[in-house]
Design a binder for these strands. Structure first.
Lengths: 197, 197, 197, 197
DNA sequence: CATGAATGAGCGTTCATTCAT
DNA sequence: TATGAATGAACGCTCATTCAT
């Protein structure tokens, strides 16, 4: 238990990842130097390069973590045993809540993806696509069932909603007039209202 | 007319601004070097610094241009002589069209704002705020008239729509299945449907 | 009378020289840009290069002016009709007063001489040498007459006094406890006392 | 002993400091480029910035070294067990000798201090002040004892002497007619003679 | 006489990464 | 495992000077 930890007992890789996440969100990927990350994590450069192949790998790990989390939650809501309106509403609200809860990761996600090398970028986009499609399937299911209007292509509906989710990191403030849940409910409500036949 | 131009006759400052816009959108602000900008514009560094105080000034100019354009267009639609639904629908569709028409500027706008120094950032945010508020006033006008639902605070409605506009640069492709106008109409339609009482 | 002047009627070359003198003294030769000089003088770069061949020429002109002035004054005191102690005392005090009165020029003189090109440097050193030698001749005259001690070589005596003159720009402040004349009298007194047989 | 050295075995920071000292003295601080320093030291720029935060830090280090040395020596002479005339004479001569022995450092000191940032400048001035005051205390001690004339304020006496010390780098040449010690003795003698009651 | 756009070389500094220990 | 000295390429920016007008 004395290995790869320091003082607080958190393993070095986690400490590095946490420091990198905070700094990338604060100042952006390019403006964060490896030196700053290792100082914030309380280790040396050698240690970082022992656990991560490059600065970019660190960024990819941040992505991988948030992508995994969001996909799991979406799957849980989407596959639940409930009417389609309810499942879509809950999934739509949940992505808002988890995005707010991980606003740092979200900022990085929407602002730093183009810093990944083409291959890694492609991989992230693919996972992102899977997420998008599971969400779209919900919309289409409701459209086929006649519960949702088919006036707008499902793809566009999904992008409409995700746009507002991405946008959260631009305007949401924890000390604002609305709680996370209220924001989530409102945004889910707007989506469902737009889909009324 | 032989002043400050070269070969094609376009003034040097414009050439620099155009080159910077394209490059900032392509690879991001931090990843674009001053050297690349001046090479793309066919001038030397000295010329750039003759017209612009810094690389950051170049970025601010890009912002200033697009902010001015969008504000003008919004004002025109918002102050038109037509029913409120119509005015909101047209304004909502128009911001989509002009964003697509200037997708480079838009990408820069939503991804590089945090690269501006605090003071310049503040100024841009202020102008942005003015735009947001003009749009919000339209929503509130409809809500007061009972034409739009008041279920969702107008602020949130505006952010919902603008989120999808920002998101355009992430997914819109000119060679996609929908034309600019179709995308604009769909997105405006989603907004109006969500606002039905 | 409307030529080469501006507003205040001072000829452009003088205005440039005055601006350069102030700025060179304030921030040093290398840290003063040609742009700053022309702005301070209220003219453009072209005007500067019309009257002066280079930035260095400006510096040389500053030197030439102060050298001429000091040489003239020394000659006047040295060739006066008075006992040698009196003539040396007055010359020694006068160089202190004129140095304090032109503290800017003096700072430049003692700090920026090595910025001149070899040829110009040589010329300035030569004129400086002439000044030194006229002063030394006074000391030697007194030594030969037995009025001054010969314990120290005259050269060294001169450097001893000039050292304190150069040093003035380091510590003299107009709002200090001593007036210019008091400082001058004290320093001349120290010299004369050191020379007592 | 194989760490941070190269070829000759001298540690890199020392090599950099030595190269910088020589070059700053030769051509002045502003005229010496970082590139020239690292080339003279046989390392790369990265190495310099590994050990020193900036070019200015290098200059400050030169100052710190000479200030420390001179203060130590002055303290030793001033606190010795000997009559006041003897202690002042020896201290006055010693500062001349050590200045000549480190003429490079001295040139830099008297010509480049204004290149330091305000904060660092202040620090250097403070240490310099301490030195000045220890020296002044010696003069005052002799004045109170009636051994030295009180005709001139002690402050001015100190500045008179230090002026000649600063001036050394302007005229002293190792191949001149006088040895270091002879120059030192003469200058100390002039000071003591000037202080005779 | 005077302008100011433009040059081009050089500046101090940063930084991801490597590697001997 | 982990260190930290060192690299080397690139970065944003400055500036004395030139020259067509």
């Amino acid at each position: 238990m004395a290995k790869a930890t320091d003082g607080d007992g958190t393993p070095v890789p986690q400490r590095l990842l946490a420091a990198a996440t905070r700094l990338f969100a604060e100042r952006g990927y390019d403006r964060t130097s490896v030196q700053e990350i290792v100082e914030a994590a309380g280790v040396t450069k050698g240690a970082l390069y022992h656990y991560f192949g490059s600065k970019e790998d660190l960024l990819q790990e941040v992505y991988a973590r948030v992508l995994r989390l969001q996909q799991e939650r979406l799957d849980a809501y989407a596959n639940a045993d409930a009417p389609i309106e309810e499942r879509l509403r809950e999934a739509a609200a949940d992505v808002v809540v988890t995005t707010i809860e991980n606003l740092d990761d979200a900022s990085i996600f929407f602002r730093s993806m183009h810093h990944l090398s083409p291959e890694k970028n492609k991989q992230v986009r693919m996972e992102r696509r899977r997420y998008h499609e599971r969400f779209r399937a919900l919309v289409e299911e409701g459209q086929r069932a006649g519960v949702f209007s088919s006036a707008t292509p499902a793809d566009l509906v999904v992008d409409y909603h995700f746009g507002s989710v991405h946008h959260l990191s631009t305007w949401y403030r924890p000390d604002g007039p609305l709680t996370q849940q209220e924001v989530a409910d409102h945004l889910a409500d707007l989506l469902l209202r737009a889909l009324r036949p």
